[in-house]
Write a protein that binds this DNA or RNA. Structure first.
Lengths: 112, 112
DNA sequence: TTTATTACATAAGATTATTATGTATATAGA
DNA sequence: TCTATATACATAATAATCTTATGTAATAAA
């Protein structure tokens, strides 16, 4: 996940948001989508992603559909009803977070 | 630090930026300043702040001046030369981070 | 005199991520 | 054909960071 520590804590928000936008996705697809959207600046590692997906599933935020495509396993994840509600909250928190961070660094950011 | 996980990883960036803006500050002052700027939305806990300050000092990012004010100890921290350079990098990383998070959350806006 | 505020500190435990490793199939290129 | 790369999942050891709880101690307010 790059050099920056800042992405720590943002993984589940990213995953839930992407699932909210795209309906359903499988793990590998999520890593590629994130890489594409951030132009390679953010690379989700498998060691972080898969345990996170399992945890979200265990919490009832995601549900999974296993499919076999080209003789290869795929686990499609999508938001549950609970997950959709949580995602709305997460997005509100992200907005607050960004606003607060900008307020904290405002004067310096303008000079870059 | 509120309910949101998003602030994880942002503590040192916040501390370094505030010190860059204010010259020198002591720990308790930092907690109050952050609370003030974020209107109470972000509360830096002491258990997170003090170890972080000690680590930054050990890394040569911060230097400390101990003073006695009203018979009470104060440890003023300020950026070293190295710390100032690092802070510029941190702010650039923060900008990238915010830009990437916004792109991930609003992919449709990018195509307009 | 009790509570809240100021001001530092650390330790146990939880959470999260990195790094390394493993399995397995498919495909492209030398 | 062999090798490397891509696809697609997974886990375990370790590292880093934060929360929660606790501790010391002085000042100020109720």
């Amino acid at each position: 996940m790059k050099n920056s520590q800042l992405y720590k804590g943002s993984l589940t928000t990213i995953v839930m948001t992407l699932l909210g936008e795209n309906g359903r996705m499988y793990g590998y697809e999520i890593t590629q989508k994130v890489k594409e959207i951030t132009k390679g600046e953010l690379k989700i590692t498998e060691g972080a992603l898969y345990p996170a997906l399992h945890k979200l599933e265990a919490e009832g935020v995601l549900e999974v559909e296993i499919e076999n495509v080209d003789n290869r396993l795929r686990k499609y994840y999508k938001l549950t009803e609970k997950g959709t509600t949580e995602t709305v909250n997460r997005l509100a928190e992200l907005e607050d977070f960004i606003r607060n961070m900008q307020a904290l660094v405002q004067p310096k950011l303008d000079t870059i």
